[in-house]
Design a protein around this nucleic acid. Structure first.
Lengths: 338, 338
DNA sequence: TTACACTTCTAAAACGATTTTGCAAAATTA
DNA sequence: TAATTTTGCAAAATCGTTTTAGAAGTGTAA
């Protein structure tokens, strides 16, 4: 009923609480505790069903062995996979992860950072929402371990690891070109995120390399605060207004899913009427006939690298931290849609 | 750089730390702190960038204002939605949620409970994996607030809230009957979970009510530890061996998704060759042509009720806790597949 | 003048652990 | 035998809060 503390164990075993602590932490040898006492303490602790109070430990040691992970939306498969992989990776180092979503809302992001700070996380893994620069900069200035994922902020001196977005899009575009598609629409989201700009740059760059003139009408920027149906409508309108389009490039998986609805609604068929390719993979893309070609981010590699960088900062303590900027290559998954 | 504590603020403001605590907790009035002092403390605290150490607060007060949520797999949309809703709901009560997945593995579940206990969560929300009875029973015996979700354990005296599985399946079956389907296969998972048995019961009950003789061959239990491909293969085999089947009822969404692959592989078309209905909704079901009929659990209601019950237990403190058993009704979403 | 009541704040204990320091007894050395 | 070292544990400080008890100082009444 009442939780048992180290003090209770000490009393029951007839020793001081420091002795119990030493034994329970395997420092019996180092602290020259006799085997007799050690055994007795261990025995008492087990019988009493003792388990340590992590709060007290963290308070005393100043290490919570916890990392804070802030993503855009834990509901999206990309972030969910990222979170899961990061969690597994962190576990290797003996750290727990607590995760939360910004929904791309800066003020929510600010709150989350504050909440994580109050909970004394040892380090921060952040996919920054727009306008979170100041808050993150502050963490960096306070010398807190921080690694940005999936995006980076030019204004902030923090380590980051992300996919090479421009290259990835160009890779996808080359594939489309090689399949004979020339009139390619690009659907992205109207968000001021570096990563989205890079993807758009990749699109524009690929066109120019191929000697195709950029047609602004082929680019659709969907407001981030869209309702599902409105977005579907917008994409459908793009297709109707531009019948010359033979392929659509979606900048993220959730846009592509909306796009599939639009295409469905127009009774167009993939890839005969329109080819489709999406950034970020998704379960649906594997199943949805005829299979949707996508650009798969190396989620595992990103997670591993990010955690490694963060651990480095955490363990390195007072030494000045070097900032690392890591870019990884994406992988094209060709399916029936192209 | 160095974190500022309440003691630092006290020193800077020239008052005792207790005074600072009172002011910061809005108890200035109650403790008759003069406005002069109050203002000074507030000012100093703000300038120093003070934020409270949640660990210390929790240690002192004995309340972590944190709930532990253990689900089967946070990657599954059903649990992800559940988790998100629970999080939002708990926030209303001023609680945070830390969540983790069992992967239906009892030993992992045991570890998770232990980890949550060490972190001093105030209450537990658990979707129990098979064989977690003893561990959960222990929590209950220790009078810890516990609410089971989505499933329940007959052997454990704990509050639980879940959908009425039997009714839900019967509802789906009636729909199939009304559409003229008679030869209905049932694909479930070979897991010893109450909830799955109830769904199977619903299937069997519906058949008998309709006066259809139960054909054991129409039931497929897929081993839980299946590889993706093996499961797809098993379902395909079921279809090949039983050409008389005109509809398939999937007991969970991930099984249905596998089933769609099987059906695809056999080049069968939905609903002409085979009708499909699934327990639990999924994004894919809305998109996948011609739309997959599904049984949608009232996730929001479940989350709300579960959190409410748990909060009740948490706040009620020492008073004996009444066990509640809540069953909610599911909703049939009819789409093109039936 | 003493007693009492307010007002305004402080001191100290407590939460549950870790860790440094201290100290008696036993063992070793001189 | 005395001095020194080692052994084996206990005491106490500490982390950052909250909270209870109470200490000064001032005003009021008997």
């Amino acid at each position: 009923m009442k939780k048992v503390s180290i003090k209770d164990i000490a009393q029951m075993a007839g020793v001081a609480s420091s002795t119990v602590s030493f034994v329970l932490n395997g420092k019996a040898r180092k602290m020259r505790i006799s085997e007799t006492v050690e055994k007795r303490v261990l025995e008492v602790a087990r019988n009493a069903g003792y388990y340590p109070n992590q709060l007290a430990i963290s308070l005393r040691t100043g290490k919570s062995k916890t990392l804070g992970l802030i993503v855009e939306n834990i509901g999206n498969i990309f972030f969910a996979t990222l979170a899961k992989t990061i969690e597994e990776e962190a576990e290797q180092y003996g750290y727990r992860v607590v995760y939360c979503s910004t929904e791309n809302n800066a003020s929510k992001g600010k709150e989350l950072i504050s909440m994580l700070s109050q909970r004394q996380v040892d380090g921060y893994l952040i996919t920054p929402a727009p306008h979170m620069e100041e808050d993150i900069q502050q963490l960096v200035q306070l010398q807190r371990p921080v690694v940005l994922i999936d995006r980076y902020l030019p204004a902030v001196e923090a380590s980051h690891v992300l996919v090479n977005n421009t290259d990835a899009v160009e890779q996808g575009m080359s594939h489309l070109f090689s399949q004979g598609y020339r009139e390619i629409g690009f659907v992205t989201v109207d968000l001021d995120i570096m990563q989205m700009e890079q993807r758009l740059d990749g699109y524009i760059g690929a066109l120019s390399k191929e000697g195709i003139r950029l047609n602004k009408d082929n680019i659709l920027k969907i407001p981030y605060t869209h309702q599902r149906d409105e977005a579907v409508e917008l994409i459908a309108t793009l297709l109707e207004n531009n019948p010359h389009l033979d392929a659509l490039f979606f900048a993220t998986n959730y846009l592509a899913i909306l796009g599939l609805e639009s295409i469905n609604r127009l009774k167009m068929s993939i890839p005969q009427d329109i080819a489709v390719i999406s950034f970020d993979d998704h379960d649906i893309f594997r199943i949805y006939p005829p299979g949707i070609t996508s650009i798969q981010q190396p989620v595992e590699a990103i997670a591993k690298k990010a955690v490694a960088l963060l651990m480095d900062q955490c363990e390195n303590g007072e030494n000045k931290i070097e900032k690392a900027a890591v870019e990884l290559a994406a992988k094209l998954i060709v399916r029936g849609s192209t």
